[in-house]
Amino acid sequence: MTMTMPAETTNPAAPGPTGPAPPRILEVRTRILKQNDVTARGLRDRFRSAGVFVTSLVSSPGAGKTTFLREVLRRVGAAERVAALVGDLATENDARRLAESGAPVRQIVTGTVCHLEADMVERALGDWDLAALDHLFVENVGNLVCPASFDLGEDLRLVLLSTTEGEDKPLKYPTIFNTADVAVVTKTDIADAVGFDRAAALAAIDSVRPGMRVFEVSAKTGTGMDGFLAFLADRVAARRAGADGVGPATAGLEGAAGTAAETAAAGASRAG
């Protein structure tokens, strides 16, 4: 069904007396995920004006996102207003587990889509009153590949790595580690039992994202949770003071590569 037609071939559809016109080259230079970027930017503006701090979580399936997040919701929710969105290919089980914390939770069932996109977050938020929240957490689909490309408008992106996974996971999936702000090593309570090589894991993280902050936690025993929560509180305070950056690396590139080029391209197409 796809017609292969090399660029050199003349246009057979219209053999005019003057011959076929030579091709034009449209210079575009636009982010392919422009639509997602635009939606994510809208979300980010909405989150900021509502004063809600948005943290997203990515990891492989089974790394402990839901258990970690349930514990975060429970602890942060004791003093602040928290809510969560959780993405999965199927089932609402994670939403139910997270709701055990007492926080309002909405499930995003993605069907066949292996990651969350900004418009899924936007739809799931619906008419939620964001101004009534201090924190919103967004748990992505368990996947270390696809979520890397999609900005969700979040302020902070966490990547989780459990002690039961290979210490070289960061080396296998450098992009997702590189687009995250902070790494969380989970299930430290069973690290010894599973022979977790802590030094190797930390070295792998530092190799793909030099200087990345790493928190080592056990949601089950509570070890390390206070340190993470103190960090989160600092980030929220910095955001309120207007002192932090613009969110995860996928958001940064929009400003670095996208905006100027898009403006130039838009100007050029109007002129042409």
């Binding site: 005019g16 003057t18 091709p23 080259i25 449209l26 575009v28 230079r29 392919i32 590569a257």
Partner: peptide
């Protein structure tokens, strides 16, 4: 981190 559409070659109809 680039993921950009750079250019499009267009053959205009006669």
């Amino acid at each position: 981190r680039e993921l950009e559409l750079v250019s499009i070659e267009v053959f205009d109809p006669e």
